[in-house]
Design a protein around this nucleic acid. Structure first.
Lengths: 236, 236
DNA sequence: TCAAAAGTGTTCCTGTTACACCCATGT
DNA sequence: ACATGGGTGTAACAGGAACACTTTTGA
C-alpha cells in the first residue's frame, strides 16, 4: 500500500483507535536489549494496527513477524495504555514532512490511540530486524541506555523490563533469549542480568535442573581454562 | 442521551471499536456471584464504551460506578478479547426491535468491538445494582449456574472466576468481597469457596495474621454455641 | 600442579503442612 | 459437663540460602 493511500484510507482497513506496540527484548554481551525504530530524531517501539479482518492476537503475531522475521516467537501481553493524550500526531508529522509527503490534520493516524502492549523474548542471533517503509532506521538499544523516544514509549519499554523481573520467578521463559542450545552458566548469567542481582550458582543449577524441562547434551568444548560445561536444550 | 441519538451519534462520542466489560464478583451464602444484565432473553456483563475525552482507566471506573454506585471499588484488568466475530449485532437488534425502536444495519454499535475486560471484587451488601436504560433487568448469578449469555460473555466471566484462584495466592484482595468488618472464620470460608478446596484452619489463620494487614477488634457476639470469634478489619 | 570454571553435596534456616491442644460460649 | 466452634502451639517436612567440596580443563 502506498503512503498516501495508507494515510487517506487506512482508517477503513484498520480499527481506527487501537494500536499494538511490541517491546522486543534481546540479550547480548550480558545486556538486555530492546528493538527500536527511528522516526526523524526520536525512536518508537515496533508496532502497528489491527485489520478489521483479523483478531488482535493475529495482528500482534503479524506485526512481530514483519519487524523480526520470526515465526513462532515468545510473546506475552503486557498492558493497556489508554491515556487521552496518546496521539502520534507530532511524530508522524515530522516524519512525513521530512519525506516531502503532504500532510493533513485529519488523517486517521492522528486519532487518539489506545495501545495494547506486548513483550517478546527473542534470540537476537536468529532475529532479522527490518524497518518499515515509514521508518528511518532500526536498531537494538540497551535498556540501561534508551534513546529519546516518542510519546510514552519509553515508559512502556521500562514496564516490560520490570515485568520480566516478576515473570521470571513464575514462568520458565527466559531461555527464549538464548540460542536453542546453551549452558547452565549462560542461563545463570542471564538470570542475574535480568534480576540485576547475584544469584547463587549451585542453588540456581539445582532449581533449573529440578524443573525437568532441560535436556542434557554432550559437553561444550571451550578454549578457556576450566571444566567444560554441558549443553542443554528445552525438551520437546 | 436518548436512544436514537446514541445509535446515530454515539460513534462520535465513543471510541468506535473499543468496549469495556466488567466481571463484578460478589459473595453471599458461601457462593461467588456475578452481576449480569438481561437483554431480551439472554444476559450480558456490565459494560460500556470509552469517551474520546476520558482515559481507559477512567471509563472503567465510571462504568463500574454506573452499575453499582461504588466509589472506590477493587478493580483489576483481566484480559483483552479481540476475536473478529465480536459483534453485538444480534443482541442489540433483538433489544431495540423488542422496544419498538427503529433499527439500522450501519449503527456504530454493530461494529466489531475489541473489549477490555476487568474484574472487580465487591461487597454485595453495599452494592446497589442499577440497570441501564437499554437493559431489561439486573441480577446476581452463581458462577456455578450462569444463565444463557450473549456472545463470549460467559467465557469472559469464567476467565475472571479462574483468574481469581491464582490471584488470591499472590495478592491480599479477597476481603473486598466481605463487609468492612469480618471474622477469620468468614475469611477462611471465603478462601475455600474461591479455591474450591479445603484449607487447613490453623495454618490459614497464622498465614493471614502473619501478613500484618489485619487489625483486631473486639469479639463478635454470636447466638450460636462455641467461642466468639474476633472481628477484624484492614489496617489503614 | 595450579588456577579457573563447572558440577555436586551438606548444612542451616524458613515457611508450609498436619495435627494436637487449649479457650470460650450456649445448651 | 459437654458439645461446638474459635484460637494457638508443636512436630514433621519441603524448599530455599549459604557454603564447602570435587571434577575437569588449559596453561
Amino acid at each position: 500500500m502506498d503512503i498516501i493511500k495508507f494515510l487517506e484510507e487506512g482508517g477503513k482497513q484498520y480499527l481506527p483507535n487501537l494500536s499494538i506496540d511490541h517491546v522486543i527484548i534481546g540479550y547480548e554481551d550480558s545486556k538486555l536489549k530492546c528493538l527500536l525504530l527511528r522516526i526523524t530524531d526520536k525512536w518508537v517501539l515496533p508496532g502497528g494496527y489491527i485489520q478489521f479482518s483479523e483478531s488482535v492476537e493475529h495482528a500482534a503475531v503479524r506485526i512481530l513477524k514483519e519487524r523480526t522475521g520470526l515465526e513462532n516467537p515468545h510473546q506475552k501481553f503486557l498492558s493497556v495504555f489508554g491515556e487521552t493524550n496518546r496521539k502520534f500526531k507530532n511524530q508522524w508529522k515530522a516524519q512525513f514532512l521530512n519525506a516531502g509527503i503532504p500532510w493533513k490534520e485529519d488523517y486517521w493516524i492522528n486519532n487518539r490511540f489506545v495501545t495494547l502492549a506486548y513483550y517478546s523474548l527473542v534470540d537476537m542471533k536468529v532475529t532479522a530486524p527490518v524497518a518499515g517503509e515509514y521508518h528511518d532506521e532500526i536498531a537494538w538499544f540497551d535498556f540501561a541506555d534508551l534513546p529519546e523516544m516518542w510519546m510514552d514509549h519509553k515508559s512502556i519499554a521500562m514496564e516490560a523490563r520490570n515485568r520480566l523481573k516478576d515473570d521470571i520467578k513464575r514462568e520458565h521463559i527466559v531461555y527464549n533469549l538464548l540460542p536453542k542450545q546453551f549452558t547452565m552458566p549462560d542461563l545463570h548469567q542471564l538470570h542475574q542480568d535480568i534480576l540485576e542481582q547475584e544469584v547463587e550458582r549451585s542453588r540456581f543449577q539445582k532449581k533449573m535442573l529440578g524443573t525437568g524441562i532441560f535436556e542434557r547434551l554432550p559437553k561444550l568444548q571451550k578454549e578457556t581454562p576450566g571444566r567444560n560445561p554441558y549443553l542443554y536444550q528445552i525438551k520437546e
